Simulated assay, not measured.
Amino acid sequence: MKDTLFISQVTNAYNTSTKNLFEILEVDDDELEKLGYDYYLRTGSNGKGYISFEYKILYFKNEIIAYELLVNIPSESRKTKNLYKEKLSKLFDINDNFKVKPIKLGIEKAFKSLKSKMDIPIEIEKIMSPFIGITYGGYCGFAGRLLPNREVFNKVVNASNCQFLLYSINPASRIMAIEYFYCNRSSFNSAQIIEIEKRIIEIEKQVPLTRTCSGCMYGKDLTKEIVKKLKKCE
């Protein structure tokens, strides 16, 4: 009953306005994550019964410009799953395997470049967005799993597209691009090296702290100290 009522409230709010939607989900702006360049990220969830609506919201200054909304159907009996599917289908697209397709609004604003009139290669669009994760690291957590953003980065980055990532809204992608640059410096010409090194100095000033993960520890480190280590390609 709690889930049914809450799903209806969220659906009605979504169909009314973004403001109403986030009021129902009780989103506040007290825990915004600074991304630099006047961009902020808010992540969280809200639920009343057995399900929770998960959200990721991108702000530019004080304005919401993009968001993702997702819910997962509980691992119950097929009959119960069908009941959830019936209610949630008024809001989400759900396939026969009860996989819910996230709602994504304004998503193109999440992977745009910080530099105007820069055409982003399609293969790095996903890693440009902060919605993929803003933690810089590798294998993290108790299970020692590779961070999703690192996994995508490793598959798509090369000397031709690395420089674009220095203008990403995602701060972790900017740092990973710096890492790639220092570990593959010979792949860049002298003009590129000068431009990239100037950009790195600007990034250090704009975002003094970077969210990091090492082993099981999550925290924030000084961006300047991270870059200092990366210069040695550590």
Rank of each mutant, 00 (worst) to 15 (best):
135 T>N: 04
41 L>N: 02
15 N>L: 12
230 L>A: 05
136 Y>E: 01
188 F>E: 03
165 L>P: 07
10 V>W: 06
199 R>F: 00
24 I>M: 10
170 N>F: 06
189 N>K: 08
125 E>F: 06
185 R>H: 10
218 Y>D: 04
200 I>E: 08
3 D>K: 02
209 L>R: 11
187 S>Q: 15
16 T>V: 12
105 L>M: 13
92 F>N: 01
162 C>W: 00
46 N>V: 11
110 A>N: 06
227 V>D: 11
55 Y>M: 08
203 I>D: 02
61 K>E: 13
183 C>I: 02
118 M>Q: 15
100 V>Q: 02
53 F>R: 05
103 I>N: 01
84 Y>F: 15
34 K>Q: 11
195 E>W: 04
33 E>H: 07
208 P>Y: 01
170 N>I: 08
153 F>Y: 12
231 K>N: 04
200 I>Y: 06
145 R>S: 14
66 A>V: 11
57 I>E: 03
74 P>F: 07
125 E>G: 00
172 A>I: 10
126 K>A: 13
29 D>T: 15
200 I>T: 08
212 T>Y: 11
106 G>R: 08
88 L>W: 04
228 K>H: 12
156 V>H: 04
126 K>I: 10
159 A>L: 01
193 I>P: 03
206 Q>I: 11
76 E>G: 00
94 I>W: 05
95 N>W: 08
177 A>M: 09
35 L>P: 09
93 D>Y: 12
24 I>S: 03
229 K>M: 12
101 K>P: 00
68 E>G: 01
18 T>D: 11
72 N>H: 13
183 C>A: 10
162 C>G: 10
157 V>I: 15
194 I>H: 09
121 P>H: 08
134 I>K: 08
7 I>L: 03
57 I>F: 02
231 K>M: 13
95 N>M: 08
38 D>E: 15
133 G>I: 11
103 I>M: 07
129 S>A: 02
229 K>E: 14
143 A>H: 10
2 K>S: 12
194 I>Y: 10
21 L>V: 09
85 K>P: 07
72 N>W: 02
73 I>N: 07
187 S>V: 01
20 N>H: 12
